[in-house]
Design a protein around this nucleic acid. Structure first.
Lengths: 335, 335
DNA sequence: TACAAAAATACAAACGTTTGCACAAAAAAC
DNA sequence: GTTTTTTGTGCAAACGTTTGTATTTTTGTA
């Protein structure tokens, strides 16, 4: 059963393909009567537009490429979901790739998206990425790039970021107000804006309270539950910390386990605040105080930004949209 | 900066586009020397194949459509991730849609995928879907459909399912062995194969142990944490249950909270086993015993199955692949 | 009734590939 | 040295749309 084309409709109606095309597109140059005839015949033949042909002719597609480190990470899957929710009603589809946090895979993915002539790319770069040439290349081909979460200013186009600084500031201030004053910070790689900004927020809060910033209290690359557990264990042993501000909920969970493993109590002996509000944060015991990162909001904004950039033909260069965060105070940080 | 095409390469080299096309495709009909020249020139011009044009000409694309109820559900995001991991190296891309558990959106999504001339569709249908005509329509157009998790036999093509029956059987048998004998079952909609099979496994285990099956102990549409909490509360109040087998970890969490809310203890007074092994299952207190549902494995199999079906030109009709499950015994079900 | 303006439709080229067939040149076979 | 086979290229059409321009038809006006 060959699929019906515009030509089949044209032939059946004794008009030309161009008229059918315009009729289907709702072009005002075709009369209402023929448009109706075309629509009827299209329905009758079960016509399904061939967007591949359409894209080729128009030189652009209705597909937006999405590139994230890992599809199955809670944060990213929520962003993707939100992006889809906005883009789909707007007539766009989502072509999704993951970099697995590898630069090589990220490069390949960009090529795949460009080969597919996507109308734009929404992305968050891998943790390995320090050279952004492959991404800039896309913008040079006039394929707009909207970055979110992990972003870099070298790449033209809008950026949607969390208010990481404020989130960290709020979290640490909250710990200090609650009587903690030897606060360690478990974080990720300083090559990523996200962790840099959280560290800055941490430092600012420490300064602001008149406490002394101790570099030995900041541990980089401790972002998983396992590394969080290990590093927290060491810090407890030698640095007499009385609180942890963790740049992620996973390391925060590790820290809690390390504290309990050391025979101490959360929050009485040591307080903990995480970052991200992962779904388990309010299920674990004690319930984890954390900075809510609104993945959904971020996805909505990224998608809307993309639609705008496409509509305005590559505007929005360098605009940075900051998504507000909230500190969720639960049990792990209040004595 | 216009993008280089095959014609540009041909012109620069004084050969025809057809030769360039064949050279790039590695066709043996073109000599090694010209192929090398073509490849060099392609690199020099920064040539990126236009897969849109290629797809139009070939009549099929390298894009696989993926349709799930919700991208951001842990299970689905893991399946998607695994599918991507297999499909990408095989040269396929993923076009992703979500149905939001709505039949209307599912229908639209299928149309979108067909319009995009995807080479196949990997999907799990919405909870509302009882009429499968829109999906069968795809197969009629020779677009292969591979179903996973929530599947229906009316739809031609392979199906990848969990061993829900065995999982439920193991879980309930385990509860019985551990001294529980008034076991309630919180589950989802009976319109979905997944929950039907789990109920069957539950019944079988009850029968097998010589216990009496009580319909009042089975609560449908109690699959979220909230409904799990409410229904568990009611059952505890009037049915003197001593265990819950829940068809999902969310309702299991709700049940645990209801038990604790009623002043009882897990697992001493009431045992709980969930289903899915959500990430929080081993973080909550008490750690949740659950049936591991290997989303990753399922995704790998679905993707491989799709590749095979495409390669063999729509074979594999009606083949059902059953993914083994494991019972993870933790704290919530052992007195 | 004639003529201009407006509306509706037709024509044809283009988007960038792929591929069956034709053809020439080189290599192999006789 | 002729014929056959092999190897390498070229030619041209096709995939299904879209769209600028040309043409026809309709409508309005004098």
């Amino acid at each position: 059963m060959r699929r019906a084309t515009i030509i089949d409709i044209a032939l059946a109606l004794g008009v030309t393909p161009s008229t059918v095309s315009r009729a289907l597109a709702g072009n005002s140059r075709v009369s209402l009567t023929t448009r109706q005839k075309v629509l009827n015949k299209a329905a009758e033949l079960g016509y399904q537009p061939n967007v591949v042909a359409s894209s080729l002719r128009k030189g652009t597609s209705d597909t937006i490429g999405m590139l994230v480190p890992r599809i199955n990470r809670n944060f990213f899957s929520h962003v993707i979901s939100a992006v889809e929710e906005v883009l789909n009603p707007a007539g766009f589809n989502l072509l999704i790739c993951q970099s697995h946090e590898r630069l090589i895979k990220e490069r390949q993915a960009i090529q795949v998206l460009l080969k597919n002539r996507v109308a734009g790319i929404i992305m968050s770069h891998s943790i390995e990425t320090t050279d952004f040439e492959h991404i800039i290349q896309a913008t040079r081909q006039r394929v707009p790039v909207v970055q979110f979460d992990r972003v870099n200013k070298l790449i033209p186009g809008p950026r949607i970021v969390n208010d990481n600084f404020t989130g960290a500031h709020l979290a640490v201030k909250h710990l200090i107000r609650n009587g903690y004053n030897r606060i360690a910070h478990l974080t990720g790689s300083m090559a990523v804006n996200v962790y840099q900004e959280r560290l800055n927020g941490y430092k600012y809060a420490i300064d602001e309270a008149g406490l002394v910033f101790e570099p030995s209290m900041v541990i980089e690359n401790a972002i998983t539950r396992e590394t969080g557990f290990e590093e927290a264990l060491k810090l407890i042993a030698k640095n007499k910390v009385d609180a942890f501000f963790c740049a992620g909920d996973f390391s925060a969970t590790g820290a809690i386990q390390a504290i309990q493993h050391s025979g101490l109590k959360v929050p009485t002996d040591i307080g903990v605040v995480g970052f991200a509000n992962e779904p388990f944060a309010e299920i674990i015991a004690p319930k984890l105080s954390t900075v809510e990162q609104n993945a959904y909001d971020m996805g909505i904004r990224a998608a809307k930004s993309m639609i705008k950039v496409i509509a305005d033909n590559n505007s929005g260069d360098g605009i940075e949209e900051i998504v507000p965060v909230r500190l969720l105070v639960r049990e792990s940080s209040v004595k």
